[in-house]
Write a protein that binds this DNA or RNA. Structure first.
Lengths: 137, 137
DNA sequence: CCTAACTAGTTGTAGCACGAATCATTCGAA
DNA sequence: TTCGAATGATTCGTGCTACAACTAGTTAGG
């Protein structure tokens, strides 16, 4: 016996939260003209340029999927492929100024939206929640 | 001024958790031959049959997307369209025995997986987490 | 009646995701 | 040094997801 009723409650609460947040993510991305996946990609790049392989690892998608995603974003001049100086095969994906601005918009939109969802929680609960979730990731 | 550093921490922890759980959801669904969306649909139907419109509302997708999803699942005899007795235009989507079994498998797989992720949390934190997340949903 | 509101489905387009195969480059070992 | 393995990215083919606009049938209310 390894699980109790409480375990199932926590797990299903997490699953439901995931679905709710997916909806929020989609709703905040769409008005910006981005799919949730595109918004995710742009937000990851805020920290700095990344190679295709590293980016695919962070986003948990195959490189072949990433290629076409980057194609579409590059066509809209939101990102740019920069050839690596040291390795002629590799390239770095970098946000353009326009892409950076949109990435910030997308990030702020979703953070704001989530903050309103969690606004009712007391500060102590917020802290417990944040640290507990950190340990899950 | 409405936000603090802590707010951003909580929001971004929630976002990261969402992405992590999406991966978990995909990883547990795939070996069962299901996409995450299909697994979600099947799990929702465990509670009982639903009409198309109600189902699309619960899954937060357009009815047109749902039609083709149900088509694919019906082709695999995991769900069935049952014409409503009282309303001839409506139909109810119901799990077949095979679909019910697979739905339980998918549900158990993801719950188990999440329980291992949260296994290290003390019981009191688990309770706080569960109730806090409930209030978010 | 008969029209307004509702239900389900259809079509067309774009995007996401994977696996297998390809190509060029780089690295390492014989 | 040179040949084979590994790496970085792309291409191709297939299937799934998602939306918007539209069709068509059904029911209920005026």
């Amino acid at each position: 016996m390894t699980t109790t009723a409480r375990d199932t409650d926590l797990a299903s609460a997490l699953v439901q939260t995931m679905h709710r947040l997916q909806d929020v993510h989609a709703e905040t991305s769409r008005p910006l003209g981005l799919t949730p996946q595109q918004a995710h990609l742009l937000c990851v790049l805020i920290a700095g340029p990344l190679g295709m392989t590293e980016l695919s690892r962070i986003l948990s998608i195959e490189r072949s999927s990433l290629t076409s995603m980057v194609d579409r974003l590059e066509r809209r001049t939101l990102v740019a492929r920069i050839p690596s100086a040291t390795d002629r095969r590799a390239c770095q994906i970098e946000l353009t100024p326009e892409g950076l601005s949109l990435a910030h918009d997308a990030h702020n939109a979703v953070v704001d939206r989530i903050n309103t969802l969690t606004a009712d929680l007391p500060a102590s609960t917020r802290r417990t929640l944040a640290t507990a979730l950190q340990s899950i990731i």
